[in-house]
Amino acid sequence: MDAVHVGGAQDPVVAGGGPAARGGTRLGRPPLTERRKAATRLDIAHAAVRLFADRGVAATTAEEIATAAGISQRTLWRYTSSKELCVRPLLTYALDVVTSLMRSWPRDRPLVRAVVGDSASLPASATDTGALRDLVLLTRTEPGLRAVWLQVHRDAEAVFAEVIAERTGRSADDLAPRVQATVLNGALRVAVEQWAGGADPQPSELPRTIARALEIAQPGLPG
């Protein structure tokens, strides 16, 4: 692994919902500086995935990722703390947007519809399905990327539990919202993995696969 810039730990919040998705206190469009930082993170993520897919993680240097992203290596370390974490924004963006929509979703409508509706309408620039597919496939053979993929979903699971608890009047530590968050999170993760591993995964198939997975998981999800 390349050297880690100690003072440049990555902000785990990427875009879309960002701090609003986790704290639930700020809504609307993020400030321009945050949008620019989010765009830079996505540029880094796309550059890293292209290089990882072409030559593998071990053979890719941080300097090569920075050059491909059009930034200096010093700037790269301000956005991430390891090569593997460069890809995190590509995975967290959609989950952050889904979380933000779940928080504002009407309580008289099934929560699952917030997720299905969002998966069908995420901005194409934020959900480059080609890069997403390459990255998810890489998680099968690259342990470092697999760890990032699983950690992203573990982090999302805790936020999902908070959202479900808010909607149902429970504590996020109660068993029911935690189990329901696990069901929701698992359905999303497996759906993306199923889609990425298909023989010819078309972009339009991703929301359909997610919708099908959530339909299967519906009995274990809150209304």
Rank of each mutant, 00 (worst) to 15 (best):
T209Q: 12
V136M: 07
Q151G: 08
A217T: 09
V4H: 01
L90E: 03
T129C: 14
V57Q: 04
S121T: 15
A124R: 14
W77M: 11
D200T: 15
E142L: 06
T99H: 03
P12H: 08
W149T: 13
L76Y: 03
R167T: 05
V163T: 02
L138P: 01
D43M: 11
I164F: 06
L42D: 09
V183W: 01
G220L: 11
Y93G: 01
M102E: 02
T139E: 02
H153W: 13
G117D: 13
Q10L: 05
T40S: 10
D155C: 07
R154F: 15
R109S: 06
W77S: 10
T168M: 12
D43Y: 01
P89M: 02
E64M: 12
R74L: 12
L42S: 09
V6C: 00
D43Q: 12
P12L: 14
L137W: 07
R22K: 04
A53R: 09
R154L: 15
S119T: 14
D118C: 15
A124W: 10
A66N: 05
R189C: 13
D96E: 15
A120I: 10
V13I: 06
L214C: 06
T25S: 04
R78W: 09
A165V: 13
A20K: 02
I164T: 04
A20P: 00
R178A: 08
L42W: 12
R41S: 09
V49M: 01
K83W: 00
E205N: 11
D11T: 07
R26Q: 05
R208S: 13
R178L: 09
G17P: 04
G8P: 01
